[in-house]
Design a protein around this nucleic acid. Structure first.
Lengths: 254, 254
DNA sequence: GCAAAAGTGTTCTAGTTACACCCATGC
DNA sequence: GCATGGGTGTAACTAGAACACTTTTGC
């Protein structure tokens, strides 16, 4: 195992890595996928190393695929973190010792003492489709509500904060939702998604008017059944028009 | 010299570097600062290596300072370029041979055959204050009009294209001009800057109204003298209010 | 005096915001 | 039948767009 890991390290870049903030949306809450490191209670973002012959974007896609099982998901590079003190959060000796005991001394040095620049990506995924899988260093995957994220290893709390900022920037210039919602969804669900990301309430009528004005939504003849209260209509994104709106850009200004 | 260079390489990261798109504005034209490589007619962006104990941002500031003599300039990280074929533009053997003859074979390998991820920054500088200075590999600095930029080495044409996109994004959400214009300037000059960056014409009255509404400009009792035609008033940014507007953001929507 | 650029306000339009009543469903 | 949430349109307001004439200066 240690041998495998060394071979893997030898095939990958040592000074640059990737970390991904994977956003999901469920039960009206915005969530991020986090990993718990083996033998510890330290959590971190999913991330990974880049093969020497692999582009950054390809590595990000691969890492996402490895952790969620999903391909073809929305993935966006948002910032590259290059402070020299990126590992300072990881100073609790107890944690380090446990890791060292588990992985061996060499790996410890490689992982935590080297200075590494990390390229931050954020991904938007459909919560229900994710098959979360831990990696070499971790043995638990969990979705955390944005508001409940604990103190993370490395500078990963900062990474989430700025990913969220980038997502908020994104949502104001491009449609969002295709990757975060199931194929069919109701207008109140879409509105709740926007409200959750932007932490802001909207008027139902105005929201509907604005979203429909982008001409990316298709109102279906179906309604969501089995829920309390009046059955809401179902909508679906028109993939073609949605893609076009992504490229040409929209201005969501509520 | 070769020895110095090897020592420098040993103190810096090998897999990550920085490239800077330095924008200036002069005579109604948006310009970028480019460097010509010694013994060649190949041009590239200013860039540099990162010291092992230096943060990305500090390295970018240092590189800018080295090339322009300026400190405290507007600097923004906009994208990290990590394709594996980033060096493919550099295939002209004649160029490579000349470089090899000049720098020696070792340097050639290090620089051009290694796969390097490059963090892109763009800077906005006041044209007149720049004392452009070439680096180790180059012997000429020149300002080029954006529209006249030749085919550059590496993937640097792409870098300029996306820096310009990022700048256009920037200008719509934050005030711009403090770093690109001299201390005192006229409203038509400021308008020309906006028009040049966005490649779009504005109505003088509406432009003035909008810019003044941000409450970041101070109209002076002076006029620019000695120019043809009616003397325009001079304006100055109110640094405090300008900084506040940068943080809180504006919406330039013309 | 003439050409070229700058100073200045108002009207119209379009987009954004505010707002309320009825209806369907589950319990 | 009642509580809860969803569906739907209009009026007021505000911000953006369009627009022209006068003034100053250098040549």
């Amino acid at each position: 195992m240690d041998q495998d890991l060394k071979a893997y390290f030898a095939k990958t870049l040592a000074e640059v890595s990737i970390d991904c903030v994977i956003f999901g949306f469920h039960a009206g809450e915005l969530k991020v996928l986090l990993l718990r490191w083996k033998e510890t209670d330290g959590w971190s973002l999913p991330g990974g190393r880049i093969f020497k012959e692999e582009s950054l974007n390809a590595a990000a896609v691969r890492i996402l695929q490895e952790r969620t099982g999903l391909t073809e998901i929305f993935l966006h590079q948002y910032y590259t973190f290059g402070d020299t003190n990126r590992n300072t959060h990881f100073t609790e000796m107890e944690l380090l010792e446990r890791l060292e005991g588990f992985f061996g001394k060499g790996i410890f040095d490689e992982l935590l003492h080297n200075r590494v620049v990390s390229v931050g990506y954020f991904a938007l995924v459909e919560f229900a489709l994710v098959q979360a899988t831990p990696d070499w260093f971790t043995d638990e995957c969990r979705w955390w509500n944005i508001a409940d994220v604990p103190n993370l290893l490395f500078d990963h709390n900062d990474m989430i904060t700025s990913a969220l900022q980038a997502l908020r920037q994104q949502i104001r210039n491009q449609p969002i939702g295709y990757d975060l919602l199931p194929e069919k969804f109701t207008m109140p669900e879409l509105q709740k998604l926007y409200e959750t990301i932007l932490d802001k309430q909207f008027d139902r009528r105005n929201f509907q008017k604005l979203l429909m004005s982008y001409d990316i939504l298709e109102k279906l003849d179906e309604k969501r059944v089995g829920v309390a209260n009046k059955s809401p209509f179902l909508y679906r994104f028109d993939k073609q028009k949605y893609e076009k709106a992504i490229h040409s850009g929209i201005s969501f200004s509520m």
